[in-house]
Simulated assay, not measured.
Amino acid sequence: MQIQCDSVKPKQTRKIKPTRRSVSGTYPFRGETAIPYESTVERDFLIRKEFSLYVLDIIPQPVQIPFTSKK
C-alpha cells in the first residue's frame, strides 16, 4: 500500500516543553498561531519565514513527514 505525500498532512510528534539548558518559548507566527521553538536558530527561522509569501504554514519540530520512494 502506498501513501501519497500530499494526502497526509505532517504533524508535530511531541510537545516542546520549556528548558533551562537552551532558549525555548513560543513565537506568535503571523499573529495567528503560537509556534513552540527549542533554540535561537529555530526562533530566528520562524521570524524569517513569517515574511515569506511562499510559506503557508509552519509545523513545529520534531515532525514526521511521510513519503514514498521508488527505491
Rank of each mutant, 00 (worst) to 15 (best):
Q61C: 11
T33H: 12
V8W: 08
Q12N: 05
Y27V: 01
Q64G: 14
D6C: 11
E38G: 08
K15R: 12
T33C: 06
C5Y: 11
S7K: 12
I59Y: 00
D44Y: 07
T26K: 15
F45M: 12
I16D: 11
T26Y: 15
E50F: 01
S22A: 07
D57M: 02
L53W: 06
L46M: 03
R14D: 07
Q12F: 01
V41D: 03
K9I: 13
F51E: 13
I35S: 02
F67M: 10
G25N: 08
F29V: 04
T13I: 15
R21T: 12
I35M: 05
T40P: 00
P10I: 13
C5D: 14
D6G: 08
C5A: 14
D44M: 06
F67A: 06
Q12A: 07
P66C: 13
Y27C: 05
I35E: 00
S52N: 12
Y27T: 02
S22F: 03
G25K: 02
K9Q: 10
R14N: 04
R14C: 11
V8L: 14
Q2P: 10
S7Q: 12
T33F: 13
T13S: 12
I16F: 05
P28L: 09
P28S: 06
V8Q: 07
P62K: 01
R20T: 06
K71N: 15
D57V: 00
L53M: 13
Q61K: 07
Q61E: 14
K49W: 10
R21W: 08
S7N: 09
E32G: 03
F67W: 09
F29E: 08
I35K: 04
T26L: 14
I35F: 06
Q64F: 15
I16K: 07
Y27E: 00
F67V: 01
K11R: 09
L56K: 08
I16W: 06
Y37H: 04
G25L: 07
P28H: 05
T13L: 13
E50N: 05
R48L: 03
I16E: 14
